[in-house]
Amino acid sequence: MAVGDSRLERLFWGAGSALVVAYALIPVVWIVSLSLKRSADLGDNRFLPQVASLEHYAAVFDDPQFSAALWNSIGIAGISTFAAVVLGSFAAYAIVRLQFPGRRLILAAALSIAMFPPVSIIGPLFNMWRTLGLYDTWPGLIIPYMTFTLPLAIWTLSAFFREIPWDLDKAARVDGATPLQAFLRVIVPLAAPGVFTAAILVFMFAWNDFLFAISLTSTNDARTVPAAIAFFTGSSRFEQPTGSIAAASVVVTVPIIIVVLLFQRRIVAGLTSGAVKG
């Protein structure tokens, strides 16, 4: 806590907090409110709906394009997360625990990929994926997502793994465990929270991506929600899709908000672990 705040100062910081919360939440409340307005009220320029209606939600869920996109998003982000976390854990464990030449190089490589502009490779990927038959398929997105989240996974996991008191591994060995037993019974339970955090961060990245999604897909076969939202046509051609977009946005935002509420501590620890230590 900060040093020696007077009451006035505390009031000041309290008011500041309220402003921050409002600033952070207004666009979210706004899109929810938009999604609940009746079609006729969409142009009323009000912040809150006069009457709440679920018509846009009904429309969105009737739209096969959106259901397909939702399914694609969940599947693709889920599989990418699993793959990135598994491969990332292997690498992070090796980097933290084993002495071998090239550890620094791997960290540096991961770091440069974290800074890599995805737009630089969408052309080649587009061309390669068409040749390999990966264009507009799940693997076509899973592969780049996994790769681009590997650095995040490796850095976060190494930061977490470094915090594990590795004396415990030695203690287990002395207590009579084989290396595998020491790993499964002592290290895995301790590493699980870190792995879980890395998984959340990776999932958020994959769930959020737009550039790969619109460059490497073209149909409902693999198009994810962000791409679908950007290209929404609405339930009928003559209707403004605003309400549908808002409803779809809320649907994909809700899971993220739940995750944030449940795991905020972990997410913050994961976000800051790499940058702040040392």
Binding site: A24, L25, P27, V28, I31, M204, W207, N208, F210, V225, P226, I229, A230, S249, V252, T253, I256, I257, V259, V260, Q264, I267, V268, L271
Partner: peptide, 10 residues
């Protein structure tokens, strides 16, 4: 964390 987590497109 809400702005951080929300999809950029949204």
């Amino acid at each position: 964390l809400v702005p951080y987590g929300i999809i950029t497109v949204v």
